[in-house]
């Protein structure tokens, strides 16, 4: 359960998020949508506890994220920020291994090693495991980072525009993998993802949270909340939802 209670965030005096109250339970993919500068990224960072709210509280599974100690925070939420500028030339295996750091603090146990192996299996990274990050393509690198976040073994995975540098094939590959992770099962995860591509949101999201100018516009199940009228208002341009081959597709009007 993620609960935001009257959360506001200011950066150097300017309001970024304004009085956001919102809560949703585990399961499925939640898409954060909204125009540029709406505060989507800041909201994601606030949920992860990386940006402290100016007022209001953020709780994830009951834990107050602004006050939690870093390792505890990292066992509740894994955030994959946008545009990872990586100086460290790590192998994929080492990178994924760092996903376990909050569990072992430098002394990996069997469970940690097993989790890294599973992550490499699930994300098909075994052939790349000994390659360094700077020798990977953008799609491969993104997959390695998602695997690292997965290995953190948190109930919640937060991803800030993970598709921005990917071509359609790799974007679809990542989304299919995330979709599979969120299906019910013993290792089920919940995903909150910032998406720019409304088509992807319409296709994969179970829930929509729409932001504009730092305020919450709407939040709810995608089939109910995502309508042509809402999208048109949100982005200030004519948009409509149409059903093509049994799927909702966003088209300009």
């Amino acid at each position: 359960m993620i609960e935001l209670n009257a959360v506001s965030v200011e950066k150097s005096g300017a309001p970024i998020l304004n009085d956001i109250s919102l809560s949703f339970g585990q399961g499925g993919i939640t898409a954060l949508i909204g125009p540029n500068g709406a505060g989507k990224s800041t909201l994601l960072h606030a949920i992860a506890g990386l940006v402290a709210p100016t007022c209001g509280t953020v709780r994830v599974e009951g834990l107050d994220m602004a006050r939690a100690r870093p390792p505890e925070r990292a066992r509740h939420v894994a955030l994959l920020a946008q545009d990872e500028r990586v100086t460290a030339r790590l192998t994929v295996r080492d990178l994924v291994g760092f996903g376990r750091w909050s569990h072992h603090h430098g002394r990996p146990r069997d469970a940690d090693r097993r989790m890294v192996r599973d992550a490499l299996d699930i994300f098909d990274l075994n052939p790349l495991a000994e390659r360094r990050l700077d020798a990977l393509s953008g799609g491969q690198r993104q997959r390695a980072f998602v695997a690292m976040a997965w290995a953190q073994e948190t109930p919640w995975l937060l991803l800030d525009e993970p598709l921005s540098a990917l071509d359609p094939r790799h974007a679809r590959d990542i989304m299919d993998r995330l979709h599979a992770l969120t299906r019910p099962g013993p290792a089920q995860r919940s995903v909150v993802i910032v998406l720019h591509d409304l088509g992807v949101a319409a296709r994969y999201a179970d829930r929509i949270v729409a932001l504009k100018d730092g305020r919450l516009v709407t939040s709810g199940p995608r089939v109910l909340a995502m309508t042509g009228g809402m999208l048109s208002d949100l982005f200030g341009t004519g948009l409509a939802l149409e059903r093509i081959k049994g799927r909702d597709v966003v088209v300009p009007v």
Binding site: P70, R73, A81, E84, R85, V86, F98, W101
Partner: peptide, 22 residues
């Protein structure tokens, strides 16, 4: 402190998200 220093090289967001006291 080797692991912590390596994590610094992953960038502030990534390091903090991994649970490092940056």
């Amino acid at each position: 402190a080797a692991d912590r220093i390596t994590m610094l090289g992953l960038g502030e967001d990534a390091a903090r998200s991994l649970g490092l006291d940056y």
